[in-house]
Amino acid sequence: MLKQGLVAKGLLVVLIVAIATAACVLVVGATAKDVAGWLIPLVGTYVGAAYGASYAFKLQQGKEAAAADRAKVDALNRALMVMCLQYNEVAATWAKMRSFDRGELPRMIGLPAYQAPQFDYRQHVVDLAFLMRFDNAQLILEISIEQGRFDACLDSMQLRSKYFVKTVEPLIEQYGLRSKLLSEQLVFTAFGERIYQTLRNNTNSLYEHFATTEVSLFETIEKLHRTAKQFFPREKFFKVGRVNFMAEPTNGLEGLDLEAESRGIE
């Protein structure tokens, strides 16, 4: 728009100069030297003003484009950072949970009451709305879903922990179940059907949430990181390494590579 305006103004100036020059020569009888004396400074002033305006406009455009790109990079890094922190939390807890997963009954009784952490970092997917212009609306939806899955992990942990401490642990101590060779019938008789089934459902739900979220959260981080590098190949973005869970769970945390492959920023 500015370039078109400058061209139009330039043509108008040329027309006015041509008319003025003709009038000076024909009516006033001015010589070419006289005309040049006032015409050249006039044209020079206009050309300088036009060039200065064009340069200032392009400079401002460049600054605005750079600021817009920086805002996009920051939004992508915030989203990646939040998911990386969430993944570290999920993976570390899942590693501990797996050490008790030697069947339904051992994990029902053996898994302690973990306190759900206070996690202040949350996704603000509205900051990623610009991805919709590049056919990445599905990725925005997946990031939002992962936030919900992470919340569900913490909620299920808190639900089971409260129930375990208030209702289950007193019965374990009362019947000395920690020191006995457990059987389903023994635990069922000690707890009763309602408590047994509630603990069973809470524990199974907790394991399912963490098992699926550990996988889906890591995959979404990988997708967003690839997308970010596609748009901004020279920028650095947060990235996390996958925790190496060994095939056989052991008593405690032995055999689990909790150091993972911490990749930090790439």
Rank of each mutant, 00 (worst) to 15 (best):
E222Q: 10
F191G: 01
L128I: 00
T212I: 14
E208Q: 12
L224Y: 00
L206H: 06
M132P: 00
R226C: 05
L154E: 12
E214G: 01
V125G: 02
G110C: 12
S179V: 13
F119D: 13
T189Y: 11
N136Q: 14
S156Q: 15
L159Q: 12
F231S: 02
M108S: 03
Q118G: 00
S179F: 13
V187K: 08
Y207T: 02
F150Q: 08
S161L: 13
K229A: 01
I221V: 03
I221A: 09
Y163A: 09
T220F: 10
R149P: 03
E184T: 01
Y121V: 06
E222M: 04
R178H: 05
E142L: 12
R200F: 07
T213R: 09
N202G: 03
R178F: 10
L139D: 01
Y163I: 08
H209G: 01
Q230F: 15
I172G: 00
E208D: 14
Q138P: 00
C153P: 04
L128S: 03
G192Y: 15
T203G: 04
R160A: 02
L199N: 09
Q185D: 13
R234K: 14
A228I: 02
L139Y: 04
F231P: 01
L159T: 12
D120F: 09
Q118W: 00
N204D: 11
E193K: 13
T203Y: 13
Q230R: 12
V125N: 08
R122Y: 11
E173P: 01
Y121W: 10
G192V: 08
L154N: 07
R133A: 02
K166I: 03
R160H: 02
Q123M: 14
D155Y: 02
